[in-house]
Design a protein around this nucleic acid. Structure first.
Lengths: 236, 236
DNA sequence: TAGATTGTTAATCGATTAACAATC
DNA sequence: TAGATTGTTAATCGATTAACAATC
């Protein structure tokens, strides 16, 4: 068996998830075949891009026909590793943390909160929603006992790195971070940032770019190349 | 005045925001100068990258010294367009929507919810938090009356495109979308995706990649190039 | 067979970064 | 002046996409 040395772009994995979630949302409609053109259009990507993305992992279509939706779904599920439920630990029971454990979108996606922790002494030991609230001291033990795979950080910025350190010490390899802090973790620990403020800031730039362009304002004596800035963000 | 034709990478704008938010978080500590090396390390980027990012907009540092933090903050604020508060409209008062209007991180960032809408007839007309809840019919009028610039979508996937259409019709040029739906909007409308499931899916891929690599499992008769996959996600 | 659509190549396009002259 | 760090160039690296042969 030959070792395939091709590197897979990070963006490809993100798009694979987008294809998967879109197909999941239309599977009940009874359509059984989709072309790269149709699927690409629905997910805002180039059709060649989509075919290339899939080609890193195999040949899933039929020439002249398209892709069988149930089969493609199954293949994407295997590629992404979505064939079993993944358990998560949450730290932080502020507004965002509370919303996360109440929202149904995680369960629908195959993810489940299994333990919650809070830094507020008042909350520890209480029951919030269906969860008993633990303190950070109990984190490592609880995580290993329950087979947790992902840690979710929903605490204030000041405490985010501490929580990340605790997750790393407990052996977690995946972190979803709702704070704005860029975390310092070992290379084998993967972090994803769900930082709303940064997303808004990039929107603000695009908007004020328009304002500037309209007024032909120059910045620091340098005429801004506003009209040439590409803004095709595809990424969450 | 010469028109500068250089294209600015989308990723540069994202990083500019990250630099800005980091510097904001340490400004009270009384440090007044930072080098590209220090700032880059704190924000998980390459120092050359950081200097290049800034160089698209001007010369903000002093050779041999570094960057004056208050001055750099001010420059970044102007570049990103963060010198005035931006008003937002929220549609959707589920768990996420509620958390968003309660959370303080938006206000701290210079963003403010000014109107909220819900699709639930029951909620319309009521007062939730400090907001009176409007129906979608009133969206266009309310948005233009109040000078709203951004629309935030926090409804179920099924309704997300409808809400986006309403935002576009009302003239908004910036949308923050918490649903999983890839929106279809005109070219001059900017969308950012805060889609947690997709982020988790990319984590899952990285994790199960490790599992596969350990077991040397092949996929579809093709040996997976797992060990060579780069996973340096920087993006929210 | 004719029409359609995939899988893949190769060219293009874009982003990152090492290296160093400029200069404080 | 010696040491430090920026700003910028040019090379490298990586990702996107047009085009088309393969093939259903």
């Amino acid at each position: 068996m030959q070792l395939n040395e091709t590197k897979i772009p990070q963006a490809t994995i993100l798009r694979l998830s987008i294809y998967y979630r879109y197909l999941q949302s239309i599977i009940s409609q009874g359509i059984d075949v989709v072309s790269s053109n149709e699927l690409a259009q629905q997910t805002n990507v180039n059709p060649a891009q989509l075919r290339k993305d899939l080609s890193y992992f195999g040949k899933f279509g039929v020439r002249g026909v398209g892709y069988d939706i149930p089969k493609l779904l199954n293949n994407l599920k295997n590629i992404l590793g979505l064939n079993k439920e993944r358990k998560m630990a949450l730290v932080g029971l502020g507004h965002i943390g509370l919303a996360l454990i109440q929202d149904k979108c995680f369960e629908r996606g195959g993810y489940k909160f299994d333990v919650v922790f809070d830094l507020e002494e008042n909350n520890v030991g209480k029951n919030i929603e269906i969860f008993q609230v633990y303190s950070l001291d109990e984190l490592s033990e609880a995580i290993n006992e329950k087979g947790i795979e992902f840690g979710v950080i929903a605490v204030e910025n000041e405490m985010a790195q501490n929580v990340a350190d605790a997750f790393v010490k407990a052996g977690l390899k995946g972190i979803l971070n709702f704070s704005s802090v860029r975390l310092n973790v070992p290379d084998d620990v993967h972090v994803r940032y769900a930082d709303f403020t940064v997303l808004l800031d990039t929107l603000t730039f695009s908007i004020s770019k328009r304002e500037f362009a309209e007024k032909e304002i120059s910045f620091k004596g340098l005429s801004m190349p506003y009209s040439r800035i590409s803004t095709a963000w595809g990424v969450a």
